[in-house]
């Protein structure tokens, strides 16, 4: 019997969703990053012993996935990213190779008739052709593994995963590492979508630049209970606050512009729920701040509840899996 899989191919994490027999879903995730280490037998043995996924390439060993960050810290370096701002990273020579390796490892080869749906960002603000390249390349990699492949807008995936009670009508926002993706959906059909490149990585880079701390330290602050609580005496937290708010403002302004620029919008039966997913939305008070910012504008449709997805890190993968299961 053929199977379906949902893949959230994010800038910082790759998440795979698969269905269980009892109609629930399972998730596995991996950091979308790698580190190149000088080859030595000792290092290779250590990696093997610890079960770290790796590949030997001439005089280098490439370690990837969750443990890559650990090795990068050990070597006082930073991890390398196969993706940037939601798309394949043109600055990274090993981008294609690493993504293919990650997909092979996470997704595995398909059985006959297996389907997969992977998430793609909305067209980037600068060059739409980059999205075409990204989408077709990833599609080819998955087809090579034997899957019947379809892609799905990331914001729409959030709607699929979370807005069943609203008949898949509402606004899905995925706050990822490289991009924020927004989709206004009407009964499961996308009406408007857009993306912004001010997201998690932008916050890390900018906060690191003004506070003088390394991006790793900034990330540590972010991931250990940071909350948007207004002015802070701590320079890193203050910087984080400022750039988180900037991300929020960018998305809210984007939504206001997008809705205003759209000539004919459907009349909704009830106010549109806004669902937030992705790691960046996990900061304390993020939802409240976004809610406040959204209420400052007026829109041609009524906005309802603004809420965090039930499982924000797995939401996109779940939505992609639902899309893959649609034709089964």
């Amino acid at each position: 019997m053929s199977k379906a899989k949902g893949l959230d191919l994010g800038t910082s994490r790759i998440v795979l969703a698969t269905p269980n027999d009892d109609e629930s879903f399972s998730y596995s995730a991996q950091l979308n990053a790698f580190v190149a280490l000088p080859y030595s037998k000792v290092t290779e043995r250590a990696l093997q012993k610890k079960g770290v996924p790796h590949a030997v390439e001439g005089k280098e060993i490439i370690a990837y996935g969750d443990r890559a960050a650990e090795f990068a810290n050990l070597l006082q370096g930073d991890t390398r990213r196969p993706m940037q701002t939601g798309l394949l990273n043109p600055q990274e020579p090993k981008s294609l190779e690493m993504i293919e390796l990650a997909l092979k490892r996470m997704v595995g080869p398909a059985d006959k008739g297996d389907k997969i749906c992977f998430s793609t960002p909305a067209a980037p603000p600068t060059n739409e052709n980059d999205l075409i390249y990204h989408e077709r390349t990833v599609r080819q990699m998955l087809e090579k593994l034997g899957y019947q492949v379809r892609s799905l807008n990331e914001g729409l995936a959030v709607v699929y995963a979370e807005l069943e009670d609203d008949n898949f009508t509402g606004i899905g926002v995925s706050f990822g590492g490289g991009m924020c993706n927004v989709c206004v959906s009407y009964m499961g059909m996308p009406a408007i979508s857009f993306s912004t490149v001010r997201a998690g990585d932008y916050i890390d880079r900018s906060a690191s630049s003004v506070s003088g701390e390394t991006p790793a330290t900034v990330r540590l602050h972010k991931e250990t209970g940071f909350a948007l609580n207004g002015l802070s005496p701590n320079s890193v937290e203050q910087a984080l606050s400022v750039y988180y708010n900037d991300v929020i403002e960018t998305v809210v302004n984007g939504l206001a512009t997008a809705l205003a620029s759209r000539g004919k919008l459907p009349k909704l039966e009830r106010p549109a729920t806004v669902v937030l997913a992705g790691g960046t939305a996990l900061a304390g008070s993020f939802r409240n701040e976004l809610d406040k910012a959204l209420r400052k504008h007026s829109y041609p449709i009524d906005l309802g509840e603004v809420r965090l997805a039930s499982d924000p890190l797995n939401t996109t993968a779940k939505g992609a899996l639902m899309a893959a299961m649609l034709d089964m």
Partner: peptide
């Protein structure tokens, strides 16, 4: 910002 109007010439039904 690259806003994509995904709906094309779709006819939006009413609330009913």
């Amino acid at each position: 910002m690259n806003i994509r109007d995904e709906s094309g010439s779709i006819a939006w039904p009413g609330q009913e």
